[in-house]
Design a protein around this nucleic acid. Sequence first.
DNA 1: ATTTATGCAAATCCTTTGCAAATCT
DNA 2: AGATTTGCAAAGGATTTGCATAAAT
Lengths: 166, 166
Amino acid sequence: MSNTFALEEVQVALSPLERFEEFLQSRGKRVTSQRRYLVEQVFEGHDHFDADQLILRLQQAAGEKHVSRPTVYRTLAELVDAGLLRKMTLGGRAVYEHDYGYPQHDHLYCQECEKLIEFHSDELRQIRDAVAREQRFRVLGHRFIITGVCSDCARPKRPKRPLDLV
Amino acid sequence: MSNTFALEEVQVALSPLERFEEFLQSRGKRVTSQRRYLVEQVFEGHDHFDADQLILRLQQAAGEKHVSRPTVYRTLAELVDAGLLRKMTLGGRAVYEHDYGYPQHDHLYCQECEKLIEFHSDELRQIRDAVAREQRFRVLGHRFIITGVCSDCARPKRPKRPLDLV
DNA sequence: ATTTATGCAAATCCTTTGCAAATCT
DNA sequence: AGATTTGCAAAGGATTTGCATAAAT
């Protein structure tokens, strides 16, 4: 399914692609076939992905224009800049997720299957803001990841060692 | 992991180095001059650091034995394993901090000066556990970083763009 | 016609590995 | 002696950059 979470919020009038085109124009950048194709694919589903997964997907959804690795990286950066994607680093590699029309949330990260489970907590934000206020710190964002083992993986085999908490 | 955090609870009797030697022996590993020197330097101050900063420090605290880059990486991993250091990834690079005799805490990260400010919140842990319980998720740890601009940097110049939240 | 993008190859950055020589126990 | 470590050089993996060509405005 594509992107019609338009009515969901108050009103996200533009589709991701339209929003991106708007962004590009506002910066004198050009709307190219690869940028268009990439945004299209990125907003087809709404799961987390890294550069390689995206590149693979772009190749598989064959018949379409080829997008080189450097261009993928360049475009991902632009999408983050445009506010369409959010970038995070999970154990060394960059992972992206939608940030346009999606509500703010945090994650539970299963070390076993590497799954990311989203959740939302207003209290969390309150704590964040309270802590920041105390330190006279201007908040621009935050990142909260709970690491552990999800219910599916909580089975006979024991978890791997602590790894890098992301 | 076979750590004896028994000591941590009751009372931190051993120095980091002693604790590390204990760990090494329990694994049939050896106490070498570089491992000793490195631990010594790491626990001189208690700030966050990355591999390069440590390597630099090891060189400057001259007169001492030289420690090669690979050995630094290898030893840092052992210290993490031993529960003496905690590792996190900040925008691609690994950053370490003391985890022996230090209370659990989280961070405020200033994008301007890259400073890490620590803080502690019991409520945060409560929220974490509540969320996990709801999802039947077994918590092994968490990572909370508030990104923004610290009071020192909140000056005339405006903050850089959102960067990678970590 | 201009100017920005793309793709390729090569370069960077950080971290890890293979291996022979050096060092612990 | 016997096993583990170290340092060196080189390998790796992810992401970025230089530059000539292709495409968008």
